[in-house]
Design a protein around this nucleic acid. Structure first.
Lengths: 116, 116, 116, 116
DNA sequence: GTGGTCTAGACCACA
DNA sequence: GTGGTCTAGACCACT
């Protein structure tokens, strides 16, 4: 169990500090729900850290659900406190699964979707 | 003569098929942007798979930015193809917040880049 | 599909991630010196990206001298300078987990931290 | 027990702790670039966790590009520090591997964080 | 209620 | 042998 000891003895990670500061800016209202954070390169500049560090900071916030990221769109503040304009009433999804229903190792003859 | 390889697989994994099927439901309009997917336990039932597999499916969709997840709230369809009505801070596209309605509450302030 | 793990993490340039992944394949021995990379269209398919992105990836590798290109012949792996033969014999990591004794199924009573 | 205390605000998930500990072993030189980590089943034993948890740990490291995985071969230490701004005593940083960019060191004007 | 973590296995695909 | 998938649950944290 002592590996845990080693870990919490030194948690001065810059990216964590940075993440916490950003979180503070959010909680303070400086950054509001559904608005975009500054770009990661911008953040890196602002905080005087490398891009990698900035990315780990936003990654941490993402893990904490403080923000969410849409690729090539940006990183956005989660509507943490209340009332997301989200439709929690679930979509009318009456039927769903595969026509077949064993789900084991059967071939699962599902049509290949033209995805990317 | 080995120039293809390994990470690709392209096998019929259940979670992958499931994810693709859900993506189809989204593209077909069955599941609309900013509405919640059925809960993961529900999805597991619908598709006749274990919870873990259902979670892998939503995880894959999350990686593909087809959906995004808010802890304890649900998993929501991303406003996929182009132009999410998101406030892209620095990009000057100031208008439109999150979809459904953005009339009454937060003014959706443009991100104040507290720069220098 | 695991390259997607590396690719997503955040909003970095896809072509860069892709280039790095290809570089890993080279370093790992998957792609060997003086052999051709898959064609750019092939690469674009494999990674699920546009042709332009694939071309930027190989361009980046070309700039780094990891590969070189012969017009209408293909893109080939450079005989890299610091070839790192992967050490498959596992690191001398004799002890790992809990320095204490048993390390079997210690209950791992991890206490949730109060958080902030 | 109270031996676990963190100023850190994130939670104490086992897989996360485990990943961080492995990362520490890497940074400490116990596990070196291009060498294989112990197999996941082995890691699970060493740390006294289930296989799934061990896999989550390596997955996290993979996302952070601390390691990379070759299917049926193993999981290998990346030759690039996850966070170049981290100075853990002496990380023994003569890099020999490939030209990944981790060159630039920012001034590191760390912002004042209210806590800690 | 939701998603997230974790267990303790079994089996598959690749090498 | 390795990592990867999948099961069928239980429990935790948060809303």
């Amino acid at each position: 169990m002592s590996w845990i000891h080693q870990l919490d003895s030194s948690l001065d990670y810059v990216y964590k500090k940075m993440a916490e500061h950003i979180e503070l800016r959010i909680k303070s209202g400086d950054l509001k729900p559904y608005t975009a954070l500054p770009a990661e390169r911008r953040l890196a500049e602002e905080y005087g850290v490398s891009l990698g560090t900035a990315r780990r900071a936003t990654e941490l916030l993402r893990e904490r659900q403080v923000v969410f990221t849409l690729r090539s769109k940006g990183t956005f503040v989660t509507n943490s406190p209340a009332d997301p304009n989200l439709n929690l009433g679930e979509t009318d999804s009456r039927q769903g699964g595969f026509p077949t229903d064993q789900a084991q190792h059967a071939p699962l003859a599902v049509v290949p979707t033209p995805d990317a």
